[in-house]
Amino acid sequence: MKARIPSLIAGRLLIALFTMVVVSFTVFAATAILPGDVVEILLGQAATPEAVAGLRTAMHLDEPALVRFGHWLAGLATGDLGTSYANHLPIAQLIGGRLVSSLKLAGLTALFSVPIALTLGITAAAMRGSIYDRTVSMLTIGVISVPEFMVATSAVLIFAVWLKWLPALSIARDVSTFGELLKIYAMPIMTLSFVISAQMIRMTRAAVIEALQSPYVEMAILKGASPARVVLRHALPNAIGPIVNAVALSLSYLLGGVIIVETIFNYPGIAKLMVDAVATRDLPLIQTCAMIFCLVYLLLTTTADILAILANPRLR
C-alpha cells in the first residue's frame, strides 16, 4: 500500500518528462515550417545568393532538420539556450529579466486571486441556491464572457484617464515604496484576476457541491455539525483534487496567455518577447519561449496531480 504513492508520483514525473520531449519536437517542427527565411530577412532584399548561402552555413541552417533538432535539444539540456538571430545576444540574457517580470506578475496575481476565488467558490457552494450564490454565478459568467482586452482598456479608461488614480503603463522601474508597487501592478493584476478567477470559482463551487451531496455530509449534519464545520471539515477535503487542478490550469494561463494584458499595459513580460520574436523570425527565441511556457504548464499540472494523489486517503 505504502509503496504506491512514490511509484505513482514517479509515474507522473516520467509522463511530464516524456510530454516535454514530445512538445520540444513539436515546437521545433512548427518553427521549422514557419513561412519566411531568416537569412533573407537578416540580409535584406539586396543580398547576393552567395551571402545568403554563406550565412546559412554559418548558422547551421543547411544541416538536416533532425540534426539541428538534436543540437538544439542537447543545448537545452546543458543550459545553452542558443543565440538570438535578430540581435546576436544569448537567449538566456534576453529572457532572464523578462521571465522574472512575468513570474512576478503571475505570482502576485495568484496570491491575490486564488484565495478570493476559493472563498467565493466555497461560500457559493455552501449557500447554494441563495441570492448570494446566484449573484456570484452571474458575475463569474459575466466575467468569463468579457474579453480581457475589454477589461484592460476599460480599466485604463476608468482608473488612469478619468480618475487618474493609477498609471496607465506598468513599467516597474522606479518603485521605491509598497504603495507605488501596488499602483503599478493594480491594473494588470485586476485584469488577469478577472480572467482566471471565473474558472476557479466555478470549478470550486461544482466540486464542493458534489461533495456536499454525499451521504457522509448528511451524516455530519445529523451528528450536529455546524454548516461551517460540514463544509470545511467534511466536504472540502474531498473536493481538493478537482480544485487544485482547476487552480493549476488557471495559473498556467498567467505565463503564456497574457500577451494582451502585457501589450496594453506595456509590461515587459515574456509573452510580449515571444510575439516580438515571431515578428523578427527569431527562431531560437521563439523555441525557448515556447519551451518555457510548456515547462511552467507541466510544472503546474504535475504539481496538481501530485497534490491530488497525496490528498487521496485511499492511496495513503
Partner: peptide
C-alpha cells in the same frame, strides 16, 4: 436542533460505507 443531533438523538445510516468520510 444542532445541539440535539448526535447527543439526544443519534442516527445509524443505511450505507455506512458511504456515510463515513473517506478523507479522515
Amino acid at each position: 436542533r444542532q445541539a440535539i443531533r448526535g447527543t439526544d438523538v443519534a442516527y445509524v445510516p443505511q450505507s455506512a460505507a458511504a456515510a463515513f468520510n473517506p478523507a479522515s
